[in-house]
């Protein structure tokens, strides 16, 4: 799974497979971070707003 492991080879199979997988995971991860971050900001903003 990682380049420091025995099975790893720097070959096209690994580029494609891990590339695609990493891409998908990154999209999902970033999307989640975005949602959570924005929600925290939204929630905080709401508190501020409530104050005024």
């Amino acid at each position: 799974m990682f380049p420091f492991l025995y099975e790893w080879h720097w070959d096209i199979g690994h580029y494609l497979f891990m590339g695609a997988l990493g891409y998908a995971s990154a999209v999902i991860g970033l999307g989640l971070v975005y949602c959570i971050g924005k929600s925290i900001i939204d929630t905080a903003g709401e508190d501020e707003n409530a104050g005024h």
Binding site: G31, Y34, T43, E46
Partner: peptide
């Protein structure tokens, strides 16, 4: 819970990406 309220909304927003 407000946070969850927002979370649900925000997730809906970018659901197409997921």
């Amino acid at each position: 819970v407000r946070f969850f309220h927002h979370l649900s909304h925000n997730m809906h927003e970018i659901m197409a990406v997921f």
